[in-house]
Design a protein around this nucleic acid. Structure first.
Lengths: 339, 339
DNA sequence: TTGTACGCGTTATCAT
DNA sequence: ATGATAACGCGTACAA
């Protein structure tokens, strides 16, 4: 087992000082060609690579960015992460990934852990619990310490920082407008409780689209489910109870489940009832029929978040100007709507 | 912006030495109660937390583990990662995640980057390209440097290290046996090329199960697709060409696509033809009908991998004894087979 | 051209 | 009971 070699080893071996080695490996003009050659050859032979940790300590820069997401088994977050990772890697950054599991405590613990020097900045989407508690002190502290922070998707107005979101309202608006143009009249919305920033926005877009097209907004056509787990019974009852010819769902799971339910009752999609779901994940693509989806452009979102963060990290200025980037959604038409 | 506070700051502020502060915060017996109280109070007030990087440098331990997987937008890897993260976090480790994108070069680059002090050990699944090239020098070097390594799922015999896999052969065997017990005779296999360790094993199990039940192994009932992307045409032609009443697929995508295709031809699942797919991901659960699946227990796999790695990291011994843990699969029965 | 000394933040050992 | 010093590995301003 050949131990990792350090400057000190090389110096000792070649009977020169550590700083000579350091300079030689940086091809400094100060060092004579002879010694440089000798040192570089030796370093190459023993495959010398500077120790990242030592460099981090010296530079007070880790070249790591911390990403905290509610859950990784969630296609959307996964695509965002991919966007982050790609961009960050290209810029020479590594990504430390933590999951909050939708838990406030885990979010706090992970953040505090990483904030103690392990990372140069954070990219995160708030956990459900955090949004419910509406407690953002951990974010505030991090911000106060001067650690850059970018929020995406699940954001809050309470914190001043860079943000990336999709235009959730516009996405819902587009979807409902499509339903209306297809001749649908009884348009339902299946969503989560309002403590999610995204749900609020989508509900707004849903309502606005109806009103703008002179259709009534009826509360009984809106089903709000608590938390992210799927209450299948509630969805089934809702679909059985109300007279509906189109459904907008704030996530794929709700949509897929709903489609299965109405299909099992013998309804035909999209003839009798049509569906649009947010996210455009893997389920939308492979369901039968394919689910028309509001694409959230996760990968792009991640790339932008990473870009914003690294920009802040590497900028010397002390100015505190924050941007919120809003990405427009795209409707990806599939078999669940008339196209 | 209140800067992160260090021992030095506290020492200067309270007019004591740095080492006194250090000891006081560790509640050392050497320090008088008075000074301890004073220092601890001050530290608490300014929310002092030791700098991880400095500690890493001192201890030559980062408490980070590096995970390299081919792709994160892949439900199975995602579940494994979750298992890793949970276990690692509980043990006080952070996880640095890199994607190889199935590319040999990215795998090498990422590994070398992290190996220079950023992590205490690796957990990884080999990229497709690496398996095709059959070149594992980057792994060997890491091993020689004494950095612990655990391979999971996509492994190789070329490297001596801890490994975790599922019993792919047994999984396929079970699936085919189930088909046979359900009275199926024309059992097909849709798989990837043999350079994947997992594909080889599954093909073996498929063949063995047929032979053990006195059914012929017929090459024309086995479709081997190159790489991981889905050649839909090839699958369609295969399904149209051969007389088949059951299909085992090595992943969900193949299975879901195949199901859609035969359904579009008017066949009924599972009456006319039945399906089993490996992985038991989100698609299996939400397809219509639900896809009977060979569960790979990703989360458990991740937890075990993390356990093995941390065990090696924290063990003082120099012994080089490696284990390969083989997890048994479970068949999760759904609507795509007779149950 | 080469080497010395210092600092990044912490801890452990050895003085006082 | 407290402090000085060295060390982890590196880079760099300053001496020689």
């Amino acid at each position: 087992m050949k131990q990792k070699i350090t400057l000190k080893h090389i110096a000792r071996e070649l009977s020169v000082s550590i700083s000579t080695v350091s300079k030689a490996l940086k091809n400094s003009e100060e060092i004579s060609k002879d010694t440089k050659d000798k040192i570089q050859a030796f370093a190459k032979l023993y495959n010398y690579k500077p120790n990242n940790i030592a460099i981090s300590l010296k530079n007070r820069r880790t070249k790591n960015i911390g990403v905290i997401i509610p859950d990784i088994v969630h296609h959307f977050f996964t695509t965002v992460f991919r966007g982050i990772e790609n961009y960050a890697n290209a810029k020479g950054y590594n990504v430390i990934l933590c999951m909050s599991d939708e838990s406030f405590d885990k979010e706090v613990i992970n953040m505090e852990l990483l904030a103690n020097g392990s990372i140069d900045g954070f990219i995160m989407a708030l956990s459900a619990e955090t949004q419910i508690k509406n407690d953002y002190n951990h974010l505030k502290e991090v911000a106060e310490q001067g650690i850059p922070l970018v929020l995406f998707d699940r954001i809050t107005d309470e914190i001043e920082c860079d943000k990336v979101v999709i235009n959730d309202m516009e996405g819902a608006y587009k979807a409902v407008t499509k339903f209306i143009e297809d001749g649908r009249k009884q348009i339902a919305l299946i969503t989560t409780e309002d403590y999610y920033s995204v749900s609020r926005e989508r509900a707004k877009g849903y309502k606005q689209a109806l009103l703008d097209h002179n259709l009534p907004y009826r509360e009984n056509l809106v089903l709000k489910l608590p938390f992210m787990d799927v209450d299948e019974l509630a969805i089934n009852e809702f679909l059985d109870r109300e007279k509906i010819d189109a459904v907008l769902c704030v996530n794929e799971i709700y949509a897929i489940h709903s489609m299965r339910h109405v299909q099992s009752k013998g309804l035909s999609i999209p003839k009798d009832i049509s569906f649009i779901g947010f996210t455009d994940g893997i389920l939308s693509k492979y369901s039968t029929p394919g689910l028309t989806a509001v694409s959230q452009h996760g990968e792009k979102m991640g790339a932008i978040a990473a870009e914003m963060l690294i920009e802040k990290i590497e900028s010397e200025k002390e100015e505190e100007t924050y941007t919120t980037t809003v990405l427009d959604t795209t409707i990806v038409a599939r078999g669940s709507t008339n196209n």
